[in-house]
Write a protein that binds this DNA or RNA. Structure first.
Length: 1066
RNA sequence: GCCCGGGUGGCGGAAUUGGUAGACGCAGCAGACUCAAAAUCUGCCGUUCGCAAGGAUGUGAAGGUUCGAGUCCUUUCCCGGGCACCA
């Protein structure tokens, strides 16, 4: 009777469905255990052998816990919204819902092959309205909440409004210090119009709207991710990419920064994972310091009475003021500032982002001299790319609405040219604010570096440096943030302006360089070259003199970031240890009102919208530029059908092309991929609930995910967002725990083992690998190295006939130069991907060897958390093991060989050794050594010719989590045979009890000790475990081998470590 | 560039707490069974010197700590993941 895995696996999979074997109840006396796999995106390429790695690990663990008496929740579902489906729709015209559905079906079919114990009644799909209704609902919770810094948790926005009505915002200052309105009283709050009130509330909401830059590719008509932009052009097609500012939703995750850090102490993530999250959050403390800027002198234009013109402009008119009140604070949806210097001119108003200037002409513009001046000026500005709008005082006085409307329309119609930092009104008497973690080094500041995209640059650049600065900015605009950070080449330009050190009045040159990013801190740093490596290299490169404030700690060769120095060249700080100086400086700064103590986070608020179709619509309606939430009863807001997946007229999402949608003033952005995946683990608990995202009693029962398995690629994305959502839901009282995942196990990637063939360039002749001296040429002729499908390479040997037929007989006429009648391929380890022809489909392997073999082999490959290349060859060994196991029960010739004989001590020792090791290994996720242990056990039992039920039955229970089908078959056979009976009626192994380890069967009284001389093992001695040091010494010294090495000398020392080893030191 | 991993035979890996490096499996070699093949079974299998006994050497590289280092420390090289619109 042979091992017919196909029949066995099919039979039990069906039987398990029939008996609802994997159904999980929310009510149980057993302790609960929640095992979760990271939410898969159902890609069109289907599963390759890398995908199920984590699923098999979690499946084994779930089954193990069930055997241990737990009520185990182990669900699966699909993160079904996402870009690939939309991209596929654009390319093939198939609706994303349709292709996603197909992909899911295929995904499911492939998963079912492998025999997982998922409770499929709990499946969820993020694109299902029954699911995204609750994603929208949670979004509304975020929108209708603010972070109360006093109670340190999220609270209803109503609480904030009540507080405003009672006492203004004294208790809850606006989080955004750049917002035009800073403080208001209760009376003022009540006097604000609705729009102003809503604008203010938006500054507090946990989900809020703002403006952010995106990579805009006009040719592709889409926004691109950073990694889709290479060298300033799109990866697909190489089209130019520009920065575009669009309205975006954000989540105020920064408010949770401290709690996200604190929570790490209460969860079992690997240290490296915690470190990554900690670094991402990037908490630092230091000071924000404001430096005055010494302005570059204005130089007069050619001809004209520029002085008079300047003077006129220095005193804003009544009309200018009135217009300003309508333009300030983004009321037009655009950031506008007034009295802005461009080169040697000052314009009344400007949108730097759109390169539009606005002039309000008073009477004095009628005199001839002024006219000439204006013409020169207009021409000059035009040259720089500015478009000028002019209005008369009368227009502003009599019909200001029309003026504002005209300005808004003009601004809407123009493309965005770059980032504008929302840095308040105008910057007259300009200052530069930097954030530093080392205020103690204030006297060592030799230059400043500011992000090139800051508006301030335009304002402070000198006439001489204008060209260089503008050229550099143009260069930086073409660079992605990633490229800027990764650039090794030092680059930058002096702005021509100087900041003034407040303590010694030293003038510090201000530079711009791409390595400073606008989004981090204030977008400006004070550079201390003697103490910071990058600053040092920058100073060296541009020959900026370096001030040494740390004496002998700085050798002039490289920077030294020490905090142990005593300060020199540091004015009033001379002689002060650095560690004390920071405090002194901060106090002094605060005293002078030019700086504040500041805790800074590297983490930014999370961008929460996409200009895409295939995502959750926001339950938001815009009325007169103000966002209003839909009511809960209007959920779900269904994703409508669209004719085209191209973006809206201003780069908005495709929803902007639907007239009815736009007419209802509904939000045209959709939510990003991580919306649905930030809370799915809660929905699995109560997947069909129509009245709540998850019933509170149910979430209280299942509580945290006890074990979460997934890749490190989610370290700082999904794993932070879902932690934040959980905390918000907890704060608002919807769930009872504030950390979603108790324990995280990371799974490594399975890489592809690519195979290559070598074709002589320009011919159809392929040369076998080992005949080549190099991969580039063969007998003086150049070679083409081509990927070949690994599925027709056996190890390294190419199946030549299969290769000829590959891809429609593409190589039908190929000729081969063979070695020993074989074609040997080259190899490389690469990412597993269709384009590299190195994917291996689990379906094929399951078909050939069975699910149990496949499961065990995936585990056998190596530790689950380590990346390793796939090698199909090795699967044979695992398959042989299962066949060998089968032969302990049934023989091909003799039939049943298992019996009810009493087990011997040796057999019991094998069993209990195995129980202990499997229990330990499974518990610590060392599944590869677990598989080895089974192999050793079966080898040993085969050697002992042990066919005893007493030994084999518990062994099957141990094996059941790893190879459930064969274990179930044999386990039930042990129950009904030899008397015969109904296998299906027998008791299932799924609910067996995990065998109990008993130490008495494995205790040893002796140990084979390695005996080392000076640390090198020379011989072995079998000694009683109870032996003493003295006895050991006597026996060791009497040993022949030891005596030989001693050469008559006395040993200095004999080290004896019980149960470990003996070392004789000579 | 920054942050986090990883590097052990021909290959995947083992060595759980600083204590016999290479368990288990693949590939390879030799043999048994067989008309033959498959399947199965037995033996060998890091490198090197040696007939052997036995020795030397060996965990990416270079140093160090220790009676003893794959494991701890310092420096360094290579590979993989992440860096905020892939999921």
């Amino acid at each position: 009777m042979e091992y017919k895995f196909r029949d066995i696996e099919k039979k039990w999979q069906q039987q398990w469905i029939n008996t609802n074997a994997y159904k999980v109840s929310n009510v149980s006396d057993k302790p609960k255990f929640y095992v979760l796999d990271m939410f898969p995106y159902p890609s069109g390429a289907g599963l390759h052998v890398g995908h199920p790695l984590g699923y098999i690990a979690s499946d084994i663990y779930s089954r193990f816990k069930r055997l241990k008496g737990f009520n185990v929740l182990h669900p699966m579902g699909y993160d079904a919204f996402g870009l690939p489906a939309e991209q596929y729709a654009i390319e093939h015209g198939v609706h994303p819902a349709v292709s996603t559905d197909q992909n899911i079906n295929n995904f499911r079919r492939q998963l079912d092959n492998i025999g997982f114990c998922y409770d499929w009644d709990r499946e969820v799909r993020t694109c299902d309205p029954g699911y995204y209704k609750w994603t929208q609902w949670i979004f509304l919770q975020l929108f209708n909440s603010f972070y109360n810094r006093k109670t340190n948790k999220a609270e209803k926005i109503d609480v904030l409004i009540a507080s405003f009505e009672a006492e203004g915002n004294a208790t809850h200052p606006i989080p955004n210090s750049q917002f035009p309105i800073t403080a208001f009283t209760a009376t003022e709050w009540k006097a604000f119009d609705e729009k102003t009130q809503q604008d203010i509330l938006m500054q507090y909401r946990l989900a809020y709207c703002g403006y952010g830059e995106v990579n805009w590719c006009e040719a592709l008509g889409t926004v691109l991710a950073n990694d889709e932009v290479v060298n300033g052009v799109s990866e697909r097609g190489g089209h130019p990419v520009v920065k575009k500012k669009l309205r975006q939703w954000y989540l105020r995750i920064t408010e949770y920064a401290d709690r996200l850090l604190e929570g790490l102490e209460r969860i079992e993530f690997s240290e490296s994972m915690k470190e990554m999250q900690t670094n991402w959050i990037g908490k630092s403390s230091g000071a924000e310091i404001t430096f005055e800027i010494k302005r570059p002198p204005l130089t007069p234009p050619e001809g004209g009475d520029w002085q008079a013109a300047e003077q006129n402009r220095d005193n804003p008119t009544e009309e200018e003021n009135r217009l300003w009140q309508r333009l300030r604070a983004n009321q037009t949806g655009h950031h506008i500032r007034r009295q802005h210097i461009i080169d040697q001119y000052i314009v009344d108003f400007i949108s730097i982002d759109k390169k539009v200037t606005i002039e309000v002409d008073g009477g004095y513009h009628n005199d001839a001299e002024q006219k000439q001046y204006d013409e020169v000026r207009t021409a000059f500005l035009k040259e720089l790319g500015y478009e000028e709008l002019r209005f008369t005082n009368e227009e502003v006085r009599n019909n200001i609405d029309a003026v504002v409307e005209a300005i808004t329309q003009k601004l809407n119609s123009k493309p965005s040219v770059g980032q504008v930092s929302p840095s308040g009104e105008d910057l007259e008497g300009a200052t530069l604010t930097v954030y530093t973690t080392r205020p103690d080094t204030i006297f060592g500041v030799d230059f400043m570096v500011i992000a090139p995209e800051l508006d301030l640059v335009d304002q402070i650049k000198s006439a001489e440096q204008t060209t260089a600065v503008d050229e550099y900015i143009a260069y930086v605009k073409s660079r992605s943030e990633r490229e800027r950070q990764a650039e090794k080449k030092i680059s930058g330009v002096f702005t021509g302006a100087y900041a003034v050190n407040p303590f010694d009045g030293r003038e510090i040159p201000i530079w711009i360089s791409e390595y400073v990013l606008a989004g981090y801190g204030t977008g400006a740093i004070m550079a201390v070259p003697c103490g910071d490596d990058r600053d040092f290299k920058f100073a060296q490169h541009f020959n900026i003199p370096i001030t040494n404030i740390i004496g002998k700690h700085f050798n002039g060769e490289e920077a030294n970031a020490t905090k142990d120095a005593v300060l020199e060249n540091s004015g009033f700080l001379n002689g002060t240890p650095m560690r004390e100086a920071a405090e002194i400086v901060i106090n002094k700064l605060e005293e002078l009102g030019i700086g504040t103590r500041k805790v800074n986070f590297r983490m930014r608020d999370a961008a929460f919208s996409r200009q895409r179709y295939w995502g959750e619509p926001f339950p938001i309606q815009w009325k007169g530029g103000t966002a209003y939430p839909l009511s809960e009863t209007e959920l779900p807001l269904l994703l409508p059908e669209v004719d085209s997946y191209s973006p809206g007229p201003e780069g908005e999402g495709p929803l902007a092309n639907i007239p009815e949608w736009v007419a209802k003033e509904l939000e045209t952005n959709t939510m990003p991929g991580y919306a649905g995946s930030s809370w799915y683990f809660l929905r699995y608990m109560d997947p069909k609930n129509e009245h709540a995202f998850c019933d509170r009693t149910v979430s209280d029962y299942w509580n945290q995910v006890d074990l979460y398995i997934g890749g490190t690629e989610h370290a700082v994305g999904h794993l932070l967002y879902s932690r934040m959502w959980t905390k918000t839901l907890y704060d608002l009282g919807h769930i009872g725990h504030d950390e979603p995942f108790k324990k995280l196990v990371n799974q490594g990637m399975i890489q592809g083992a690519s195979r290559f063939v070598y074709r002589i360039n320009g011919t159809n002749t392929f040369v076998s690998k080992d005949l080549l001296k190099s991969e580039e040429e063969y007998e003086g002729k150049k070679l083409d190295k081509l990927h070949v499908d690994v599925n027709f390479v056996d190890g390294y040997e190419l199946d030549v006939e299969a290769f000829k037929k590959w891809r429609n007989n593409e190589h039908a006429n190929a000729e081969f130069i063979l070695e020993n009648d074989k074609y040997i391929c080259g190899s490389e380890v690469e990412k597993m991907s269709k384009s590299k022809f190195n994917t291996v489909n689990p379906d094929d392997l399951v078909n050939k060897y069975g699910a149990d073999t496949f499961r065990m082999y995936e585990m056998f490959l190596g530790p689950v958390e380590i990346s390793k290349p796939w090698d199909t060859k090795g699967i044979e060994g695992v398959h042989r093991f299962l066949k060998k196991l089968w032969r302990l029960f049934y023989d091909e010739v003799k039939g049943q060989v298992w019996n009810n004989d009493k087990a011997t001590d040796a057999e019991l020792k094998v069993l209990h050794k195995t129980i202990k090791k499997i229990e330990d290994d499974t518990e610590r996720f060392s599944f590869n050594t677990g598989v080895s242990t089974f192999m050793i056990a079966v080898n040993e039992l085969s050697d002992l010719k042990c066919h005893k039920k007493e030994i084999l039955e518990p062994l099957l229970v141990l094996l059941a989590p790893y190879a459930p089908h064969i274990a179930e078959e044999l386990y039930r056979r042990l129950q009904v045979s030899p008397s015969g009976g109904d296998l299906e009626g027998a008791f299932s192994i799924l609910d067996a009890n995990f065998p109990k380890f008993e130490a008495k069967y494995v205790t040893e009284s002796t140990k084979d000790y390695p005996v080392a001389i000076n640390g090198k093992t020379r011989t072995e001695l079998t000694l009683d475990l109870s032996i003493t040091q003295q006895e050991v010494e006597a026996i060791v010294l009497a040993n022949e081998t030891v005596q030989k090495w001693l050469e008559g000398k006395q040993p200095k020392k004999i080290i004896y470590v019980k149960n470990k080893m003996i070392n004789v030191v000579i």
